[in-house]
Every structure is written in structure tokens, then in C-alpha cells.
Amino acid sequence: MTSAALAADPAAALDLLGSGALTVHGRVTDASNAVLYCTVALDGRTAPCVYKPVAGERPLWDFPDGTLAGREVAAYRLAAATGWALVPPTVLREGPHGPGMVQLWIEPDLSAPELLALQDPAGPEPGWLPIIRAEVGEGRTALLVHRDDERLRRLAVLDAVLNNADRKGGHWLPAADGRIYGIDHGVTFAVPGKLRTLLWGWAEQPLTEEAREVLDRLAAGLGAALDGALAEELRPHLTEAELAATGQRIDQLRSTGRHPLPSADWPSIPWPPV
């Protein structure tokens, strides 16, 4: 079974990731924290995965509580509740270097159309949405754009709920199954607004009917007093303040009915952007 096919069967994927034997094959060297490429095997099934041990995390002054691994798992749980399958199956478990996050490895489809581009500053071209004007050298500028793609738009809604502080262009992967998967959710769920993303093309536009229905479902899952089933899934990984802030972000999106605008108090574009 391919990783894409396994991702489409979350129950089987979570069983394999949570109970299988982990074998470490190497380290992803361009990551700022320990990211280990592994395989996981159980009852004749084998799949590639990423293992991020808590012991390999660097402390962050603006995320003093919890762990990156815990927030990655919480992001998966909340994303799964949307029904959009935007985050690969993810578990928290013991591994060769102690407890950590284990996530199904998604091999990007290198033949998929590009989702980011630099275009003439007079753009964007049809089918693309503007992000920001970028310096490209020798006093020249270009318009950084992303595709007007419904899969990315769903990811933008998820990021607004997660308060994702690091949605780089390399943090979404087009897969062979036609889905786009978001990865690297360690800096999410902060209480103050920290949304930093490249997916600003829909800023202040009305949310789709589908998105409004998903937000209603998330609100119901958290419960009026954070006593719902979804809140109980997230609680082991987040503080009560982070849970409450998540509910407030969902309520704010439901109230405005629009995609958020960039904050004037926080950098709105991650660095590096890709």
C-alpha cells in the first residue's frame, strides 16, 4: 500500500504508526529541530514516516508550554475533525529516542502543477492570487502568487483555526492521490494571534459555505464549555488557555464569515517563505 493510499485509510495508518516497529534511516538535515526519516512495520505492512523526538526540540520563547510534537498531534486531530484530510495521520508515541511525534511520510508528486510562482508585478495572471511584492535583485520586483486552488483555500481556513505561525511554501505537499497535505505544525495554537502564511490570496473574502459548515462542526466538537469530544482529544496536548483561544478563533471566523486579514502586529509572511 502506498503512503497516499494509507493516508486515505486513517484507522489503518494510525494503527501502523502507533504500534509498528520504528527503524531510523537518517536525519532530515535542513530542519531546525530533530526530524528523523524512518520506516514503521507491523504485521507485514511497512510505510515510511517522520519521527520528531521531543528530546530533539529547541525551546521557543513564544511557545513556552507543551511540546512541538504535542502540537503536531493536536493539529492532526483538529484537521481530521474537519473531514478535509489535510494533515497526514500523526501519533504521539515512544520511539528509539524517547517520546515524539510520528507522521506518515507523504512523497510529493513532482509532476503536479506549481502552486507558487513569481509573476509580473502588474499581475496576477488568471487562476492565481497575489501574496506580496518581492525583491528579485537589481532593483527589480515581482509578484509572489499562489494558485486559486480550493485545496489551498481549505488549508488557509485550517491555518486560521490553528493560528499557524509557519505556513511556508514547503509546508504543503501535492500528493499522487490529488490531495494537498499540510505538514510541520509545531508552532500552532498560540494564544495571541501569530498567523503567518503564504495563503493570503483570500484575505477578507467570504468563506465558502463548505468552510462555514466545517467551522460549525468544529465549534460543536469543542463544546460550549470546552467539554466536547474534540476538546477531550486536544486537551492532552494543549493548555486550557490554548484550547479556549482555539474556540475563540473558530467563533470569530463564524461571526465574520470571512477569511482573516494579515495582522499589523505580527509578521504575516514566514521566513524564509519557501
Rank of each mutant, 00 (worst) to 15 (best):
V102A: 14
P89L: 07
L152W: 02
A79R: 01
G137W: 12
A79E: 04
A55Q: 09
M101I: 12
Y76L: 06
K52A: 07
P99G: 09
T67V: 06
A134P: 10
A81R: 13
L86D: 03
V50K: 02
V87I: 10
A85Y: 02
P59M: 15
P59A: 11
C49K: 09
L129E: 14
I131F: 05
R93S: 03
A69N: 03
Q119M: 13
V145D: 01
V73K: 03
D43M: 11
D148V: 01
P88F: 01
P99S: 15
L60Q: 11
R77S: 06
L143V: 11
V102N: 03
P126R: 12
D109T: 02
A80R: 13
Y51R: 11
R147Y: 03
P53Y: 09
W105G: 01
W61T: 07
C38E: 04
P89R: 05
G139V: 13
G95W: 13
E94F: 06
G127F: 05
E125M: 08
A55S: 14
S111K: 13
L36R: 15
L143T: 10
A85P: 04
P108S: 01
P53E: 13
L68F: 13
D148P: 00
E138N: 07
P130G: 06
G123K: 08
R71I: 07
L86H: 02
